[in-house]
Amino acid sequence: MPHRWTIGFDADDTLWHNERFFRSTQSRFVELLRDHAGEDHLRERLLAAERRNLGRYGFGVKGFVLSMIETAIEVSEARVPAGAIAEIMALGREMLAHPIELLPGAEEAIGALGDRARLVLITKGDLLDQERKLAQSGLGEAFEAVEIVSDKTAPVYASIFARHAIRPERAVMVGNSLKSDVIPVIEAGGWGVHVPSETVWALEQAEAPKTHPRFRRIETLAALPAMVANLGD
């Protein structure tokens, strides 16, 4: 079926909850370091460390944990006790074991589209953690291909299109991040569908390309099958 649509799905905060666990852990981190710095200062320093470390550690829990440890050392002027570092590492292990909770409409949308489109999972982050979450989600068998990448940019999407013989004009990428799931895939020639999530990481925020003809926005994944049908043949 050379002319069928290819639907790419982001994973975290598109198919299942994720950012809420980072927010909860960050709150516990702030509480743990309350004797060394105020909440706003800690959050600012942690975000700065995350931004600074993306090129070193990439996206995901492990990089987040390393950024928390680095921030703890910095704000305490290297006086943070070893016990606090151990607690930060325990927070990370807890994040890596959290159960998967699918977002509303995810399973139904994938079930409805599976027979009439090629489904591909395109997500970024730690390889082992993303593989764990996909396995626990019960959705793995629905995807013809799975791409776990270090970042999502227009060249990365173009490479995925070429590797899987996907025509960009027949490719739709669905996700909660305008910066990673929508804007770069449009730049690569595909369609970007924004599904807003309850929380968005500060480093994933961007302006929506509202006037672009290949941009769409839906409130939940339940609306995706009808939206794809309206794109036409």
Rank of each mutant, 00 (worst) to 15 (best):
T6A: 04
I7V: 15
D13L: 00
D13S: 03
W16M: 03
W16F: 09
W16L: 09
N18W: 03
F21P: 02
S24K: 04
V30F: 01
E31C: 04
D40H: 08
H41A: 15
L42K: 02
R43D: 06
E44N: 09
R45M: 09
A49S: 15
R56A: 02
G60M: 02
V65A: 02
L66Y: 01
L66P: 03
I69G: 01
E70K: 05
E70A: 14
I73M: 15
A78K: 11
R79H: 12
V80N: 15
V80G: 13
V80W: 07
G83D: 09
A86Y: 00
E87I: 08
I88N: 06
M95K: 05
L96Q: 14
H98A: 08
I100G: 00
E108D: 12
E108C: 08
G111F: 02
D115S: 15
A117G: 12
I122R: 10
D126M: 00
D126N: 15
L127I: 10
L128H: 14
D129I: 03
E131V: 09
Q136L: 10
S137H: 06
S137E: 09
L139Q: 13
A145S: 14
E147I: 00
I148W: 11
S150Q: 08
D151E: 15
V156F: 02
S159V: 00
F161S: 03
H164Q: 15
P168A: 14
A171P: 01
V172C: 06
N176F: 00
S180H: 14
D181N: 00
I183V: 15
P184K: 07
E187S: 15
A188Y: 06
G190N: 10
V193G: 05
T199L: 14
V200I: 14
W201A: 12
A202V: 08
E207N: 13
A208V: 05
T211S: 15
H212Q: 06
R217D: 02
L221A: 08
A222S: 14
A223I: 07
L224C: 02
V228W: 03
A229Q: 07
G232Q: 08
